[in-house]
Simulated scan of single mutants.
Amino acid sequence: MNTTFAENKSPALILIVDDEQFIRMQLRLALEREGYQIAEAENGRKALNVFQQLHPDLILLDAIMPDMDGFECCTQLQSLECGRSTPVLMITGLDDQESVDRAFEVGAVDFVTKPVHWPVLRQRVKFLIEQSHLQKQLELAHRELQRLVTIDQLTQVSNRRRFEEYLTQEWQRMAREQLPISMILSDIDYFKLYNDTYGHQVGDYCLQEVAQCINHSIKRPADVVARYGGEEFAVILPNTEIEGAIILAEIICSAVRELKIPHSSSPVSASVTISAGVATIIPKPNSNYQEVIILADKALYQAKLAGRDRIKSISIGKY
């Protein structure tokens, strides 16, 4: 039997958990004949460790074991990352209604009774693994869809929707913890002249290069780069004081200059440059995140008035 899928080249991995070595051996031999890979654990505690190391596609779990029984093991599996999405087939010598109900309550998706009826086990294992793979495909597709609706398609950084969602989230968190949040709002200098000179297709390439340059300049996972609109890009910096935000803005402006994208129409430079406004504020409870945007926009305006290709900053509060 072929247990592989086009998107999953290796055979499915099944974790067998049973305190009886003879039962584990029987299950291993029967399932290996079907083409599956097998891992074993002799009790619930070891099963939890093996699960976190190997992330099997299916768990065959004995209900009655010393130290930690299958019911408790299944309960703890549900609290682990990926535990909820991994199907558990409970194997039990108990076929009373209470035990069956309890198996499903703790998260098992099916059960078989001892002595094991091998044709039944074979079909249930096959069905559960196929369902598990299908569920994983759906989850991947959902995550990709979620990514697509929050990404600016041209520049591949976060879009305005993601910008607002993330800023709202971090603004509220900083307000609760009374920590500073900073923003860098940047604008490509004389971008209209750039488009007029080189055309919109080359202008799109310029936007892509600048966006990725900014994106590569940030180092912390919590910092988010977004296309704010047109040729404007914003960087959200949670728990960042003004000094740190200014340093990052300087790094970004320098990195854009180093791209050396020709801009023969620019009054300030022979290559593409950006102006940046930096703002830092400690949000007050029940305040609006627009406050930091207004400050950053004001600082950006000051940078443009001062001649562009530079940084201006505004902060409120003590750091």
Results as ranks from 00 to 15, higher is better:
Met1Phe: 02
Met1Ala: 07
Met1Gly: 08
Thr4Pro: 11
Ala6Tyr: 08
Glu7Cys: 12
Ser10Leu: 15
Ala12Glu: 05
Leu13Ile: 10
Asp19His: 06
Glu20Cys: 01
Met25Gln: 12
Gln26His: 08
Leu31Trp: 03
Tyr36Gln: 08
Glu40Asn: 13
Glu40Gly: 10
Lys46Trp: 05
Leu48Gln: 05
His55Met: 15
Asp57Gly: 11
Leu58Lys: 09
Ala63His: 07
Asp69Phe: 10
Phe71Trp: 08
Gln78Thr: 07
Leu80Thr: 10
Gly83Ile: 09
Arg84Ala: 15
Ser85Gly: 09
Ser99Phe: 01
Val100Met: 11
Asp101Phe: 06
Val106Arg: 11
Thr113Pro: 14
Lys114Ser: 10
Arg122Cys: 05
Val125Glu: 03
Phe127Glu: 00
Leu128Asn: 12
Leu128Gln: 14
Leu128Cys: 09
Ser132Met: 14
Gln135Lys: 02
Lys136Val: 12
Lys136Asp: 13
Leu138Glu: 12
Leu138Val: 14
Thr155Asp: 00
Val157His: 03
Ser158Cys: 15
Phe163His: 06
Tyr166Pro: 06
Trp171His: 07
Arg176Tyr: 03
Leu179Ser: 09
Ile184Arg: 01
Tyr190Met: 07
Phe191His: 07
Asp196Ser: 12
Asp204Trp: 05
Gln212Trp: 06
Cys213Asp: 02
Ser217Phe: 05
Ala226Cys: 15
Leu237Arg: 08
Glu243Pro: 03
Gly244His: 04
Ile252Ala: 11
Arg257Phe: 00
Lys260Thr: 02
Ser264Cys: 11
Ser265Leu: 08
Thr273Gly: 12
Gly277Cys: 10
Lys284Asn: 02
Ser287Thr: 05
Glu291Arg: 03
Glu291Met: 08
Val292Asp: 00
Val292Ser: 00
Ile293Ala: 04
Ile294Gln: 06
Leu295Phe: 13
Ala296Leu: 09
Asp297Cys: 10
Asp297Ile: 12
Gln302Ile: 10
Leu305Trp: 00
Arg308Glu: 03
Ile311Asn: 03
Lys312Asp: 00
Ser313Gly: 06
Ser313Ile: 05
Ser313Val: 06
Ser315Glu: 10
Ile316Met: 09
Lys318Glu: 09
